[in-house]
Write a protein that binds this DNA or RNA. Structure first.
Ligand SMILES: [Zn+2]
Ligand SMILES: [Zn+2]
Ligand SMILES: [Zn+2]
Ligand SMILES: [Zn+2]
Lengths: 129, 129
DNA sequence: AATTATAATGCAATAATTTGCAGTTGCAAT
DNA sequence: ATTGCAACTGCAAATTATTGCATTATAATT
């Protein structure tokens, strides 16, 4: 992957701004600095960065995919399907599973921002079953 | 959730046809029987069925989301990002993780068709690092 | 500095998905 | 059977995402 200008700006944007930005949000912020950029360029740059492991892409149940810079400490999320609450979980348990899979299936998992959907405790109390 | 006609047809379609159909493929098959159906109705019916746990929705790295009927035996997949090979894995290890999460975070995971991306052994041999 | 190969971009067309809103239908309670 | 409510649907528009192809920028090689 080349050191293209859009790559650099996307990474800087994702590191500076809040996490979990949509492609359109990233596109908007980039246009502030680099007005001529095309949207397909942003989508393709995000795809490249995701494939290279520098950003994560996730469907968190919003309308659009969200992107996040992948730093040293990885994390994952639980998303409540009822109230949309987002819980952050650390990497340890997840990596244990990934290691198991790597041993059992000889497959190197690179998923770096896992989203699991379900129901939080409050929503289960509020509406059991 | 009501017993709407579109719900029934979608479930029948997913059970009869091959797995991992896109919304457009489902839409196409439904139109064969029920020509007047609108595509947004199909999307919303799929969303309902997914929320009810009767079908799974997954991004498997194709252009579009894929849907599958959820039967008694659940399964999950590993998808190679290089060669697009799809490996099916069984539920045991995954449910163990989900149980851990449920204990540690008091969060009931309902994800029923987990997709993990990575690199298969052949691709790692072919292009190490 | 010129050449070359490949990655990255712009542009426009297309595809996939979501949404607002008005109207319809299924279902339960009178 | 009638009523009433909420779920479901159709339609059109908007949003989100992907793709083909010609052009440009980057980095390595000569
Ligand atoms: Zn995150
Ligand atoms: Zn909740
Ligand atoms: Zn499957
Ligand atoms: Zn592979």
């Amino acid at each position: 992957m080349r050191a293209s200008s859009v790559n650099q700006i996307i990474l800087k944007t994702l590191e500076q701004d809040q996490s979990h930005l949509t492609a359109q949000q990233i596109y908007g912020r980039i246009r502030d600095n680099l007005p001529a950029v095309n949207q397909s360029t942003v989508y393709r740059a995000l795809e490249r960065l995701a494939h290279a492991g520098q950003v994560s892409v996730s469907d968190m149940g919003l309308g659009a995919a969200v992107y996040e810079a992948v730093g040293g400490e990885q994390h994952h999320h639980l998303v409540c399907q009822e109230c949309n609450q987002v819980i952050t979980i650390d990497d340890a348990a997840i990596q244990a599973l990934f290691n198991d899979i790597e041993r059992q299936h000889d497959f190197q998992v690179v998923t770096n921002h896992l989203i699991l959907f379900g129901r939080c405790s409050a929503c289960r109390e509020r509406m059991p079953e």
